[in-house]
Design a protein around this nucleic acid. Structure first.
Lengths: 121, 121
DNA sequence: CTGTATCCTAGTAGATACTG
DNA sequence: CAGTATCTACTAGGATACAG
């Protein structure tokens, strides 16, 4: 049972980094909304339900900085800006499928666990 | 491939929930440390580098509430408490593998992107 | 349309001391 | 050993107003 392996089993840092990457309340929602193709600022504001203008800007900048999306400005009047996912972001989205499956399969159980736990308090 | 529907492509809520689930600075670290088998409070405190006693307790309670681990108390003196992952948590860990791969493959690129972006400021 | 700037709040987390 | 209790600090995030 208690092996002398005190070290962590997998790659702790990598996972920490990816979670750092997708952390934040809105990151995933934005990536999801941008999956079908280039999307404008206002469209994102509409599609990512509940996001504030401020957080949309901040999250977009972070994603752009990390190279997960590119920002294209069309110098028209009024201005038009499109955000497009990079391949890296698309791969990230693919990697999420396993998590989505997990969430779908266990969301009911988890909810039930919580209710039971809270009642047992 | 996803259709060109303008609505959200996949299951936005499920993914939001799973991220809610694993959110928190220490959640993943604890799951990782518990993968090899039952683990005690103090062992976790040592293995999850940098965690405070308070956050360890809080995160363990949350995980227990969600049914991701079970808490077993041995009424000995001094007390002994073991935390064991449930199958749900192990499945979650499996689902992370894709993310880990993603992180490993792109961490260098992302770092480079950040440096470039910051210099372009 | 696409943002910035400012102010404010609430939740997350650290440090420390104490206890069954 | 395995926690709880306090108290404090930081930051993510919301609301709102303004600007190129």
């Amino acid at each position: 049972m208690s092996q002398s392996h005190t070290d962590v089993p997998d790659e702790p840092c990598s996972l920490g980094e990816v979670l750092e990457q997708v952390s934040g309340k809105w990151t995933i929602g934005i990536i999801m909304a941008a999956i079908p193709g280039p999307i404008r600022f206002t469209e994102l504001e509409r599609e990512v339900e509940g996001i504030s203008r401020r957080m949309l800007t901040l999250t977009l900048r972070k994603l752009e900085r990390d190279g997960l999306l590119v920002r294209t400005v069309y110098p028209t009047v009024p201005p038009k800006v499109e955000y497009t996912l990079t391949d890296i972001a698309k791969e990230l989205h693919d990697s999420f499928q396993g998590l989505i499956t997990w969430a779908d399969r266990h969301k009911g159980t988890i909810q039930a666990n919580r209710t039971a736990y809270d009642r047992a308090e």
